[in-house]
């Protein structure tokens, strides 16, 4: 990308211009190198937004709840950014992004910017670019950024790396108590929502949650709210809960810790992806991995050994250094 075009994008993001912000997000999604330059340029202007993550199983009502919350933040005059992630097809690489359907009533409000993203093969419930997209929205002046993960199972916990406040949205009738006490998304919740509270099992689910969730290390216990998001019922409780969690984090010094934890988590993710990608690209270009075909099928080389061979070939200094420290 020419440097002039890059300046226009950076400037547009900082001014909150929706066309440029939207294009900058595409660049971050498609072109990691140019994307990182843009993010680095706008990063000094970030840090003001409250990032709230929403996760939970498919069909629990995450999008509808986010849609209802947009209205409440708008009523308080807050500028709202939304990132809604849906899965990429592992076969075609395409995706249908449908979360916006439930948020379209705010589609023309200039204080709201909604972006749908596909996971593009990234695991963990978010797309690889999610962290950078949050930074762009933050730099564009959004006061609150609502991030909706793909419908998640039990281990899609990446959202905890990016959000100050994590809302886990559940619905009644999704399984017995054992599902609830397994490790996973429940442990990352700062706020729990039992949506579809007009369902007959809603009270049972809420009670089971109240009994099973544990007090966190900091002494807090995530509150459980019941909502009927399609009718907006109970959503104001969640809204208050989110704001209170933010206030408490700031008062107790937990905000800084989350910011630093997010920073480290993003650095880690980026290093893993960037270095893996570069090594695999180089190996593919040379046909290095294909050269292992016979040995692999003859079971002479294990996958772990093959990965060490790639690292030894393309990033030997990393192995040397760790060997020195051993």
């Amino acid at each position: 990308m020419a440097s002039g075009a890059l300046e226009v994008l950076v400037d547009g993001v900082l001014k909150g211009d929706p066309v440029r912000l939207a294009r900058a997000i595409s660049v971050v999604e498609n072109d990691a190198r140019t994307g990182s330059t843009i993010v680095q340029r706008v990063y000094p202007r970030t840090g003001k937004a409250h990032v709230v993550g929403f996760t939970g199983p498919p069909g629990a009502g995450k999008s509808t709840l986010v849609g209802a919350l947009i209205g409440m933040f708008r009523a308080k005059g807050k500028a709202v950014g939304v990132v809604a992630v849906d899965p990429t097809s592992p076969f075609s690489g395409g995706a249908i992004l449908g979360d916006r359907i439930r948020m379209q009533s705010y589609g023309t409000d200039p204080g709201v910017f909604i972006r749908s993203m596909a996971t593009r093969g990234h695991l963990g419930g978010l797309s690889r670019a999610t962290g950078d997209v949050i930074h762009l929205l933050d730099a564009s002046g959004k006061d609150v950024i609502l991030v909706e993960t793909v419908g998640s199972g039990q281990s899609e916990v990446d959202i905890m790396k990016y959000a100050h406040t994590v809302v886990v949205v559940l619905a009644p009738g999704l399984g017995d108590e054992v599902q609830v006490i397994k490790a996973g998304i429940l442990e990352i919740a700062d706020i729990l929502v039992v949506n579809k509270a007009d369902h007959e099992d809603a009270d049972k689910t809420a009670t089971a949650l109240e009994m099973l969730i544990e007090t966190k290390k900091d002494g807090s216990k995530p509150p459980v709210y019941k909502t009927i998001a399609t009718k907006g019922l109970g959503v104001s409780g969640v809204f208050e809960g989110i704001q209170e969690h933010g206030r408490n984090l700031k008062a107790a010094g937990g905000w800084q810790k989350r910011v630093w934890d997010s920073f480290l988590a993003e650095v880690r993710t980026n290093i893993i992806e960037e270095s893996a990608e570069r090594m695999l690209e180089a190996a593919a270009k040379e046909g290095f991995l294909n050269g292992l075909y016979d040995d692999a099928l003859a079971r002479k080389v294990s996958p772990r050994e093959a990965s060490l061979m790639v690292i030894r070939r393309y990033a030997p200094e990393i192995l040397d250094r760790s060997a020195m420290n051993d």
Binding site: P18, T88, S89, S92, I96, L97, R100, G107, S116
Partner: peptide
């Protein structure tokens, strides 16, 4: 069909105003 052709398709549902569609086109780039 477009998803199966490898594209990312944003579907916004029924009864959209031209204003909503235009804004979605911008934000979704």
């Amino acid at each position: 069909a477009l998803r199966d052709a490898g594209m990312e398709v944003i579907y916004t549902g029924l009864h959209q105003t031209p204003e909503q569609i235009a804004e979605a086109a911008v934000q979704e780039d």
